[in-house]
Amino acid sequence: MNMAVSQTGRNPVAANAAAAIEVRHLVKAFYDASGDRITLAATDVNFTVKRGEFVCIVGPSGCGKTTVLRILAGLEQKLSGEVRIDSTTPPAMVFQEASVLPWLTVAQNVAFPLSLRGVSAEKQRGRVNELLELTGLTEFASAYPHQLSGGMKQRVSVARSLVDDRDVLLMDEPFGALDEQTRLTLQQELLGIWERTGKTVVFITHSVDEALTLADRVLVMSPRPGTIVADLAVPFERPRDVVEMRRDKRFWDLTYEVWRLLAASPEH
């Protein structure tokens, strides 16, 4: 694996860093009792994510990306295989679908994990304000979700996942509903946070472009039942400039490579 070495950033992860996430021969199937039907969602999924690494997963719709992430988050039971997460805090998840709680204001939504833990109101406020600032939601702190746009709701979810500073961050197409401009800004912010905090990130996206912008490594999945068909290192130095890196020829070579892999995946 050829990791680029940068002098400025905290990254890349040392080649010998311990694994934060290890997935071996993971199989997941769903059984629908009323139709007596089994859906195989993922077969023999294998990958490792090192502590502090940023990994993106790309793959066609329905290939099992969300399923794998939910298993990592402990929200879904695996059928067989091994999943190991080595972290002192449970992973924080950003869900693919709208997941803000409609009965809480924006600020209360962001504070939700802290409030469950009985953090003092004052501490909560400080931390929440920081994240609202970061996600550009300060003005809407006291708005209810039904008063927000789709992209704003998604930003609330991102802010909530960061609020209690967990070691592992699982993000399921968090910027999917955003316009190009906001997405670039948030990508840059996310990279900034990641570089400062050393979180381990697993990030699902259907955008090859986004994967190459963010990741240390890109995992490419086959169509359902999904399995990892390629594990590509992204060699750009850190910290990255999400705009500048698009002038690099290697960016487009890698884009081509991932597209080729996605197109070559056998259909089922």
Binding site: G74, P90, P91, F95, A98, S99, L101, L116
Partner: peptide, 15 residues
């Protein structure tokens, strides 16, 4: 999804 959010945020049963 709301139950998933609660679980991921670390809510107890009572919470």
């Amino acid at each position: 999804i709301y139950l998933d959010v609660a679980r991921n945020a670390g809510a107890t049963r009572f919470q």
